[in-house]
Design a protein around this nucleic acid. Structure first.
Lengths: 186, 186
DNA sequence: ACCTGAACACCGTTCAAGT
DNA sequence: ACCTGAACACCGTTCAAGT
């Protein structure tokens, strides 16, 4: 008897892990800290997640889903013809709001094919817009050009790689305008 | 007496650390493994480097210097007018040859201003070419556009983010051609 | 069913002691 | 001067034992 008496839940554990990732980064996430945050001892977490990596996978999956949602809603809100720019801005603002969480999306272990799928899905809204406006053969390279630029820009921005001062927002607008125009001329 | 009798050297330690980073990534580098590789006990390493992070800093600095050299030599070798494309290809080939070492360049701790400088210096050859061909006000945004694309592309490529098959080389050429052309039209 | 203490192997790092 | 063993605090993870 006295059957369950769960002190926490899978979602609560993931939420606590996510909060730690947002504040201190994935490298600094310890099972001890997660356990303490949800009021449990470390061994209990292993009843819910096979190991630390799988728990981080769940946090990453949540971040990917959220990014996909933000991109989709930016697309929905944008005036016709301005979808790409609106989505690019939404992408950057997602990464800037939670840079350490964003970084987790790109530090996924080699193993998990499922998570690689989820990451690809997170930029699906970008693909759809490109598919609607470009020749079939250009869609994949164009998507790679755009996602590479977006990831590179926010990764460099959030890791402090843009050292030389200047207006980073202006550099983003400068780049985005040329990038979108060069796709339009395909 | 019997004064020195050094079993290893700073350079040998850095070289051993670099080999480990290249093979298994910075996260998997332990002081124990480095010590063993150079035939010494872990505590001895602390006579040479303050801690694990500083040792990784030295490895990162070496990688940055090497990247700068590769970019400069690509520039020197390139026919007039094709410098940017040649340097972009050299950048990608550096990252693909040692993806885990490349990743280290962008995982530098917030602390070290000196290393942030070295990272900026590693793409100095790109800056110089842009300065020779663009209006003053466009140099910084253009450099950010180009480095953001390059870093994003190779980071996604080496982390397995380009899931959907297709020809990645073709996507790189596609992007690079449009990117360089869009800078030329400034 | 879920939780826990105790244990194991493994870290980074310090320090007094060796030569 | 450089190296070392021993120690400390901290990990991730396992497991038998509790309710």
């Amino acid at each position: 008897m006295c059957p369950a008496l769960a002190k926490t839940s899978d979602q609560e554990v993931v939420a606590a892990a996510r909060a730690i990732v947002e504040q201190t980064g994935a490298a600094a996430l310890s099972m001890q800290a997660v356990a303490q945050a949800v009021g449990v001892r470390p061994p209990s977490l292993y009843k819910r997640f096979a190991d630390r990596d799988r728990l981080l996978d769940e946090v990453a999956r949540g971040a990917m889903d959220e990014l996909a949602t933000k991109l989709q809603s930016a697309r929905d809100r944008a005036p016709a013809g301005a979808e790409l720019v609106a989505m690019a801005r939404a992408y950057r603002s997602f990464a800037k709001r939670a840079p350490r969480l964003y970084a987790l999306i790109f530090s996924v272990r080699d193993g998990s094919a499922e998570l690689h799928d989820a990451r690809a899905q997170s930029v699906a809204p970008l693909f759809e817009v490109l598919r609607a406006t470009l020749a079939e053969a250009d869609v994949l390279p164009a998507a790679r050009m755009l996602t590479a630029f977006l990831h590179g820009f926010v990764a460099m921005e959030t890791s402090g790689a843009f050292q030389l001062g200047g207006d980073v927002q202006k550099a983003f607008d400068f780049s985005l305008e040329r990038l979108v125009r060069s796709l339009g001329d395909s």
